[in-house]
Nucleic acid binder design. Structure first.
Length: 788
DNA sequence: CTAGGGTTAG
């Protein structure tokens, strides 16, 4: 395996051109099978004899097609009559798909010298009003639609009316469906209204499409009316789907129940809509609602199928809530439903996203050994896991295994593997893999080039990254925002700041997102002041990751006022941080004792239904304790328990460390702010021990420290011994607490001498702040020792 | 006909 190459520009080009030529050979090797003699004669044919030959193939359409392919390769173009003949042949054999593709090719070719309407004319001369003509105009509509040429498709529709050969409603449905996909809703509505004028009569499917269009427009009322009016199950189903897409799954679920009551749906319909509603709730992240729906349905005797379960499992996996996902999986298996590769892939991905790649691979093997069919999506997740672990050799082995099972890797599989190589800096391997892929007839797409360019930039090959970027454009691929952002950030992370800045300036279409990436890139390379300056210049809402990264970077450098400006800007734009981001921010704010801002963020979180995690609660409690606002700490402690978040050893330690401050015997100088509910340490201690949580070194240290402070030397030493007995190794701070406790009283005895000797033997370097105190204590103790 | 996989990403 080769490691990070020093790839020069020319080497890179060499590899690229080799890859390009292998692609060329592959395609020419795929050519059809006319004999040599036939090929020889082709160039001598004129249009008339060409037509004659074509006509003679009317009993063998595949021969007709390969004949044509050869002709085209000789650079001879067909005239309108030849095309009419070909169309007639294909049509008479019912080869609609072939007909479609011939027409598509015809339309792509702009140097034909005739239009498709001419073609209709020619066919009409011989087959006026026949079925053939109707079929051809339908095929023409479909061909235009598949090329995204909607105006032309509609034009054919209206021209056909003139020729009295309006295509059947299917072609029209196809057109309308595609129009919706491309967001041209108004055209669908207009077309629907003109159907009668065209002599067409919409069927159930047409109505369903129209319902879909109205839903997309947000006209749920109109959609509902049409669904009722057409009283077709299909239209109803589409309406329910529309509700789900519009984020009103609640309503969809209600309608579904109504349809079951009125027996509007058959078995198939029930299954389809069930899945839609379950999926809708999951998409809206309303997991409780989704589960309630499933329970309700079960009550009336309709159980979820694999499709509905997979929606639930997938959503929980995406939320990184593996226990819930597995609970549903168990439930599903308990009902005798079988797990499939789709569900497996969701679960595997969940492990990967939680940084548990080893577990993902373990599970992959388990599922495979259970003889569950794993498809290329599952394999892809495994490639990803191996890549993240830096185990590319094994990933490639797995690729072989996949091939052996008869699955051809696709561009996504290759991209994942290439990404893996890029993480490792094995760029030549990445390029080799692309070459191999091209050999298999697959061309890289924008995402693959993005990954590759990012990989080169990140690994210090800025110029090559730009070559890749230009190459992608040369191949006719259009880089997107992500491409640009990846390149900008990768260049920055390789400290190529100037190149990143130049790259942005040279972009034809710049957008704020690009500059946001520059801000992130500056942060990445530690230029937080520069990042902040650029950020201030950007007067628009940004993705929350930008605020997050900048905030963290500024906090790290100690520019707290700037960090707060970032936070406030974010809030001003109503960009609300997610749970983990809030947690990190709260941590950063607490770290600089700005508990006021931290609490504001904390409350924002709660108001948005984001329940702070154990870590966030603990850090807040800790900060309040440190600032002697014990009442507030106490409130949060109760609050977290009410939310079902179980305090851990850290939380209890924090509390045990501060409640003694309330003790009358407590001698610390800080005063406690505000009224405090009467709660003593023993109350907390009781809860702590009841919870059965094991004590750690820090916790023992706090307890020892407290005993020292209330002059209970025997208890302190007892705790110290107990700690050692329970298998914990006291650290510097633990010794320090004990020794300091002794020294404070100016007291020295055998125990202390022993402790100090032990401590001096330890090979620990004291940390600066606390260590200094310990050292002083130790020295003091030593002096006592010498005095004796 | 429907689902799950590859880029920025804490």
């Amino acid at each position: 395996m080769r490691v990070s190459p020093n790839l020069s520009l020319s080497q890179f080009r060499l590899i690229r051109s080799a890859a390009a030529s292998s692609r060329f050979y592959t395609i020419s090797a795929l050519n059809p099978n006319l004999s040599n003699s036939e090929q020889l004669n082709l160039s001598k044919l004129n249009q008339a004899s060409l037509l004659r030959v074509l006509n003679s193939t009317r009993d063998d359409p595949s021969l007709a097609l390969s004949f044509l392919k050869q002709i085209k390769q000789q650079g001879v173009s067909l005239n309108v009559n030849a095309y009419a003949t070909l169309v007639r042949i294909l049509s008479s054999w019912g080869l609609d798909r072939k007909l479609d593709s011939v027409l598509v090719e015809l339309m792509k070719n702009e140097e034909l010298g005739f239009s498709v309407i001419d073609l209709i004319e020619v066919i009409r001369e011989e087959d006026n009003g026949s079925l053939l003509l109707i079929r051809v105009s339908g095929a023409l509509v479909k061909a235009y639609v598949s090329l995204g040429m909607f105006d032309e498709a509609i034009d054919v529709l209206f021209q056909s009316k003139r020729f009295n050969c309006v295509p059947d409603i299917k072609a029209c449905n196809f057109l309308m469906n595609r129009l919706i996909e491309f967001g041209k809703i108004d055209m669908v509505v207009a077309l629907f209204r003109q159907l009668k004028q065209l002599g067409l009569c919409g069927n159930d499917y047409t109505n369903a499409i129209m319902v879909k269009a109205l839903c997309r427009k947000g006209d749920l009322g109109g959609a509902s009316m049409l669904a009722v009016e057409s009283s077709s199950v299909f239209a109803y189903t589409t309406f329910i789907d529309g509700l789900c897409v519009n984020g009103d799954t609640e309503k969809a679920a209600a309608l579904f129940k109504e349809m079951i009551d009125t027996k509007t749906l058959d078995g198939d319909g029930i299954r389809t809509v069930y899945g839609m509603v379950a999926r809708g709730f999951c998409k809206e992240k309303k997991m409780e609602a989704a589960e309630r729906f499933i329970l309700d349905m079960e009550e009336i005797g309709i159980g979820p199928d694999v499709y509905a379960y997979s929606a639930m499992i997938d959503r929980h996996c995406k939320n990184l809530n593996l226990p819930e996902a597995l609970r549903f999986l168990d439930q599903m298996l308990g009902k005798g439903l079988k797990i499939n590769c789709v569900i497996v892939s969701s679960i595997l991905q969940c492990y990967c996203k939680m940084d548990m790649c080893l577990e993902a691979l373990q599970k992959f093997k388990e599922f495979r050994d259970m003889n569950i069919f794993l498809d290329k999506v599952c394999y892809n997740v495994a490639f990803d896991a191996f890549g993240k672990l830096g185990r590319m050799e094994e990933a490639i082995e797995l690729l072989k295994e996949m091939r052996c099972k008869g699955m051809a890797p696709d561009v996504i599989n290759y991209t994942t593997l290439i990404g893996g190589y890029c993480i490792q800096g094995k760029l030549v391997d990445a390029l080799d893999l692309i070459e191999e892929m091209r050999g298999n007839g697959i061309s890289p797409d924008v995402i693959m080039y993005t990954v590759l360019a990012g990989g080169f930039a990140r690994n210090g090959h800025a110029d090559e990254a730009l070559v890749i970027y230009n190459e992608m454009k040369k191949e006719g691929l259009k880089p997107n925002d992500v491409t640009h952002n990846v390149i900008i950030e990768s260049l920055c992370s390789a400290r190529e700041i100037k190149k990143a800045e130049d790259f942005i300036e040279n972009l034809e279409e710049k957008c704020p997102k690009n500059y946001a990436s520059l801000v992130k890139g500056y942060c990445e390379s530690g230029l937080s002041k520069k990042a902040f300056k650029e950020f201030v210049r950007l007067q628009c809402p940004l993705h929350k990751s930008v605020y997050f990264k900048l905030f963290n970077s500024l906090c790290l450098k100690g520019y707290l006022d700037k960090a707060l400006t970032v936070l406030k800007t974010m809030w001003a734009y109503h960009v609300v941080p997610g749970r983990s981001m809030c947690g990190k921010m709260i941590g950063a704010l607490c770290g600089v004792n700005n508990v006021g801002e931290a609490k504001m963020l904390f409350d924002t979180m709660v108001a948005r239904g984001l329940i702070p995690d154990l870590f966030t609660y603990t850090i807040m409690i800790h900060t309040y304790c440190r600032l002697n606002e014990l009442q507030k700490a106490d409130y949060l402690f109760e609050d977290m328990k009410q939310r079902g978040i179980k305090p851990d050893v850290v939380t209890y330690t924090v509390l045990l460390d501060s409640y003694p401050k309330l003790d009358p015997e407590h001698h610390e100088t800080d005063s406690v702010k505000g009224e405090v509910r009467k709660r003593n340490a023993s109350e907390v201690w009781g809860e702590f021990t009841d919870a059965g949580i094991e004590l750690d070194v820090v916790c023992y240290t706090v307890l020892i420290d407290r005993q020292c402070k209330i002059h209970n030397r025997e208890n302190a030493i007892k705790l110290f011994r107990q700690m050692i007995k329970s298998g914990l190794k006291p650290d510097m701070v633990a010794y320090a607490a004990l020794i300091r406790g002794y020294c404070r009283k100016g007291y020295i005895d055998e125990e202390v001498k022993l402790l100090v000797t032990e401590l001096l033997k330890m090979d620990i370097l004291p940390t600066e702040d606390f260590g200094a105190a310990v050292k002083r204590a130790a020295l003091k103790a030593e002096r006592f020792q010498y005095r004796e």
